[in-house]
């Protein structure tokens, strides 16, 4: 039986069962990256277009590596997208790509909902690699995968997400994903970074970091995205943010003793967390990156029509 969704537009569309399916397929792909020859023929003959209309280094590299390890033909396009009406419309770009019959379109775009818009107009499966401040579902899935590989059961999990929740697609997707898996999620930051109504997504709101960290299994710090402020003063400066909401060794004492520290990257060292936390024994930040390749392999496989029950990955 194939995966029930044509495209992966967001966590919002996924059931708990869908998420667990993706995680278990990712588990079977994880070991390929540890082989001496890191390549299987699973997606041979499939064409994947990586359409990154907003700058990205690590997400794009992660998808490219996942595609190569599955033997898919990956094409990279990074046309600029501006809101001014210069050049080709997004719809025309997508229709031109569709005319070349790709199987999967991986897309990142500055505008929330851009993948949903294209999904109504083209046949290729779409994987949302980040749309504005809306969703970043592959990041949330790789975060869940990382947590599960650390042996933590979701049902008793307490997670604190700290930072600019309002402007973060990572936060939105993670809240949806982790709560669907049964975890309790707290979000923490200054009120300028926490939009009203977050409770509707299933999160609990805290404004003091020590309250947010109290007894949690996972502390996930978000990048403070100074470029997203759009001219609005959400913070006095990075110094005050670091003092009030930055993770340091002392603050980690509020967490469970074996609690994990996560960050989707790239880190502003000294702002969201001290270097000794980022590089410390509780940090699984680089493990998140490794997990990302396995999760993206799983998604490419499922979106290409692969069965979750009998994963083909012999070399």
């Amino acid at each position: 039986m194939a995966f029930a969704h044509k495209s992966l537009l967001g966590i919002a569309q996924l059931s708990t069962e869908d998420i667990l399916t993706i995680l278990s397929v990712a588990e079977t792909f994880y070991e390929i990256s540890e082989r001496r020859i890191k390549k299987v023929p699973t997606l041979r003959g499939k064409t994947v277009v990586n359409l990154f209309m907003e700058p990205s280094t690590r997400t794009r590299a992660s998808f490219e590596i996942a595609e190569k390890r599955l033997s898919a033909d990956g094409i990279n396009l990074s046309p600029s997208s501006s809101s001014t009406k210069k050049g080709e419309t997004l719809l025309d770009t997508a229709r031109n790509l569709q005319a070349m019959h790709p199987d999967i379109l991986v897309m990142r775009h500055r505008a929330a909902g851009a993948p949903h818009f294209l999904d109504r107009h083209i046949q290729a499966a779409i994987i949302n690699a980040g749309d504005g401040a809306h969703e970043h579902p592959t990041q949330a899935l790789l975060d869940a995968f990382t947590i599960r590989r650390q042996g933590m059961p979701f049902g008793r999990l307490n997670v604190a997400i700290i930072g600019d929740i309002a402007h973060s697609r990572v936060a939105r997707s993670n809240i949806l994903c982790l709560t669907r898996l049964g975890a309790n999620v707290r979000v923490c930051g200054p009120r300028t970074m926490l939009q009203p109504g977050l409770e509707a997504l299933g999160a609990t709101v805290c404004h003091r970091l020590d309250d947010a960290l109290d007894g949690v299994d996972v502390a996930m710090a978000l990048r403070v995205q100074l470029e997203r402020f759009g001219g609005e003063a959400l913070l006095p400066n990075a110094r005050e943010y670091a003092r009030q909401f930055g993770l340091n060794r002392k603050r980690l004492e509020h967490m469970k003793p074996d609690g994990l520290v996560m960050h989707p990257g790239p880190i502003n060292r000294g702002v969201e967390m001290d270097p000794e936390v980022a590089d410390g024994e509780r940090s699984v930040i680089l493990e998140q990156v490794t997990s990302g390749v396995a999760v993206r392999m799983a998604l490419l496989y499922l979106m290409a029509g692969g069965s979750p029950d009998s994963v083909v990955k012999e070399s």
């Binding site: 909902g113 809306h134 939105r172 109504g197 509707a200």
Partner: peptide
């Protein structure tokens, strides 16, 4: 700020300004 949707449920779910 010429936000595209109402600040409330719609913006919480869509991330739109």
């Amino acid at each position: 700020r010429r936000g595209a949707v109402h600040e409330g449920e719609a913006s919480t779910w869509t991330g739109l300004r």
